[in-house]
Design a protein around this nucleic acid. Sequence first.
RNA 1: GGCCCGGUGGUCAAGAGGCCUAAGACACCGCCCUUUCACGGCGGUAACACGAGUUCGAAUCUCGUACGGGUCACCA
Length: 549
Amino acid sequence: MTDNILLADLLLPNITKEPEYYENLYPARNLPEGARVTRIAPSPTGYLHLGTLFAALVNRITATSSGGVFYTRIEDTDKKREIKGGIEDIIDGLNRFSVEIDEGFFSGTNQKGEYGPYKQSERAEIYQTYVKKLIKEGLAYPCFCTAEELEEVRNIQESRKIRTGYHGEWAKHRNITYAEAKELIDQGKPFVIRLKSPGNEQNKIIFEDAVKGKIEMPENDEDFVLLKSDGIPTYHFAHAVDDHLMHTTHVLRGDEWISSVPKHIQLFKILGFKPPKYGHISPIMKLDGGAKRKISKRKDPEAAVHFFAEQGYMSECVIEYLMTIAASDFEDWRRANPDKSYKDFKFNLKKMSVSGALFDPVKLIDVSKNRVCRLSSTQMYSLVTDWAKEFDKEFYEILTRNPDYTKAVFAIDRDVPKPRKDIAKWNEVKEYFSYMFDELYSPDFTLPENISKEAAVAFLNEYKSVYSDTDDKQTWFNKIKEIAPKLQFASETKEYKANPEKYKGHAGDLSTVLRIAITGRRNTPDLCSIMQVLGKDRCIERIENAVRG
RNA sequence: GGCCCGGUGGUCAAGAGGCCUAAGACACCGCCCUUUCACGGCGGUAACACGAGUUCGAAUCUCGUACGGGUCACCA
């Protein structure tokens, strides 16, 4: 036993605190019964992607639904893979998607809360304190194996078809003595600290996963690394120490972690910690060719959450869509509560899908349209200009030149009982309303086959003289109906349908002619409103222009 | 390969042994409404991976097979 204490002091001479110090520093949270403490622990090795956002959302809503706390912790223990700006991108992204952060990093550089620091690189001493304790107890030891040695062992294991890894008799330094360790250290040999796993591969551990249900796995017998040679912990060890000290109740993370659970549970047990409840979330998949596969940061542009911002999806629409994947009962709830925030939804992990859902852009569009159509023209104006300012400068200039005019454009067929559902994202707006802005207007005057050019021109010339921009919708259409008979068109569609051979067409056809003349398109929202917003002068001008063309 | 996990229409899914002749939503198609288009309304196409077993009865329970996914680092 004294050997272990000597070893501990030899390996971690600068660690003088005892675990009790931290246990007292971070007392239990003062939270009501049943409150869940969740977290998202991103590593700044890339930008915020859909999977991370999804996991964050699930953690967030789990905390919210139980009156708990959701915090962020930066897992920057892999200095090699870290990219600059990673933390900022992830935290800012969470903020942009209104995934509210109660504690931890709430911006790229700022953290708050009583359980910090919330960045693992700033917690080295804490981890080392616990490692030192394990060494003293004979539950951890230094390993001096080089990458080459490890590789060699692995090759032997593979060739003999036995389970690979650093375990049992293959764990070379498992029983290293103080004297041996001292000698190697004196030689300047680098080392890692490994767990002296008390596990037996023959034993099973059973745990209840909050989303997948009961899972049975072999106990861990691998002497995995706790502290890397740079003194920084591996994920596994940091997870155990941090989630214990930060009093996480529910660890909800991607299901790629599921195979590590035996390691984690073992660690909690050895350290004398109460393990959290685990819930493993299935990844969001994507269809590639004919095959389903996990959505990938590298291959799929939509994996980077930034993609949605560029396209002009409202962040709440993306969240709304993600909620439909996260909770099978969300859509029913939404129908019953169209105006509530998703935050009011009572989320239940049991309602999560066990298998990975395919990311469905079509469904996202539908969700978006249903949200966008409920926006007021003023809200539209503010959202679209904000987007354009960042992603389409030219359009931004056009939109903001005359805000009242732009708002009037957005008001067309909006704020009515049956709003249109044409727009899903802001990068569609420019094209959708291009005819409302002279510099974007590029008309196509092609007429439908059933209408002759002569008839169209005759109608337009006639119409020009009667148009008034103060007419209401009914009067406006009546004027078209009045002209119709003069050109052998039926005033009423029914009349025409009853005797198509008697007419060249009907009033509806003439309104199409007018629509084409004014907007250069066959399909648009309400023409009367469009013409009112455009103003009489521009309408007449466009009609004349169309007649010439 | 070892160890885990998964499976209902094209997609998301409801489903806890009889209420399943299998819900709903998205998409698609048709009809109606209608000055275009949308919206809305009505209707339609389309699914329990396969094979054994348990049972009076299986989408549901058990076991196999094939398939899909994850994981086997001093990465998280």
